[in-house]
Design a protein around this nucleic acid. Sequence first.
DNA 1: AGGACATATACACAATTTATTCATAAAATT
DNA 2: AATTTTATGAATAAATTGTGTATATGTCCT
Lengths: 223, 223
Amino acid sequence: MYKILIADDEEKIRAIIKKYAEFEGHKVTEAKDGMEAVLICRNEEFDIIILDIMMPELDGFSACREIRKMTDTPVLMLSARGEEYDKIHGFELGVDDYVVKPFSPKELMLRIDAIIRRSSSKEDEAGTYSYDNLHINFKARVVHIDNAQVNLSPKEYELLFYMVKNRGIALSREMIINNVWGYDYYGDERTLDTHIKLLRKNLGDYAKLITTLRGMGYRFEAE
Amino acid sequence: MYKILIADDEEKIRAIIKKYAEFEGHKVTEAKDGMEAVLICRNEEFDIIILDIMMPELDGFSACREIRKMTDTPVLMLSARGEEYDKIHGFELGVDDYVVKPFSPKELMLRIDAIIRRSSSKEDEAGTYSYDNLHINFKARVVHIDNAQVNLSPKEYELLFYMVKNRGIALSREMIINNVWGYDYYGDERTLDTHIKLLRKNLGDYAKLITTLRGMGYRFEAE
DNA sequence: AGGACATATACACAATTTATTCATAAAATT
DNA sequence: AATTTTATGAATAAATTGTGTATATGTCCT
């Protein structure tokens, strides 16, 4: 669970991020402008601070400058398309990453994970997963079974990645769809079945690692 | 934890790098020009030395030349855009990598990791890469296939260079563009495809070493 | 400055792969 | 046995990448 502070004057944007982040079990605090964000930061520690650039009262850069005087908490900036030059400006202020609006919440969450992982440097990621002769190399983004490379489509790989990352945990259909497809997925629910099928097919004997939890979702077995 | 020496006359640049590196648990020593860097190197060992090219007292090249007389510590150069020739010049001096200003600290850290990983494993001590009859000499910036020199355009070489230095790792389109074109590139995304195409053509049979990761990017195969 | 050349980029469209939908079969639950 | 849920196969839609060509852009030379 991460503590996230999100500062944006658009309520809608805050709501989207909040909803999505809470789904992943994070705690979200909202600020409606830069000034409010700075004030909140005086009394509370966060794992990451998300700042929109264009805000009333105090813009994202100024807020970032103020926050930097107090803490080293990683900062992620939200910029509208066309604010390109700001990117350069921002890195000098100690901005950790940028996401251009409109963004995919899924990608935003991935970036948040990456930033926090990097800055806390606790986790130094082995970068691989193995079970018998099934080997996944996350860095190379490659899967081997019995020393042969397995060709997975992007969706199959992402699905596997998400499940392996959360192995041993019961994953509801909704969670899987939210994390692999994004919370704004409005397609057929049965699509997940199809991808599970394709993934199982590609995993051959190791398909047994994916357990169906009827009425619930799936679980990738740990050990 | 790595010991990093950063020499740049701009205090701001040093501060950015220092902040990010310390975030990742590294120890950073600062030098405000090339002369100071050389003096510090006489008394202290580092895992990597970062040198700006344009510095008062002693520029990056001269400093590198001096440092090379004492130690084999990997050197990363910071060059301003437009100092293209300088890159070539730099490699003759035994520069391990270069990053064009302005850079994204995130990418710089990734490169530092890559360089240190490589040099500590003594992998390509000679500054070359070979696979069958494909030979790349990083110092000379030259590529040979079957004993014949291959003519690569600057962009093609840089693309190959970046991919080979990060071989075995899935490189997203974004990462490649950030590192080869710079993070402030806003041209057509498909330009990368074109350069991959040209590079593959020039690599002939060895084009197979560049794997397309659909929906993701590319990977230069290790081994 | 102008021309020849190499290089970089843009872009259209073909080739290919992947994602999705949907109908039906199979399995589990009641 | 009826109902609910999941698995599967096949058809279709959608997305991504490869490639050829055209157009800039830049560099070197005279």
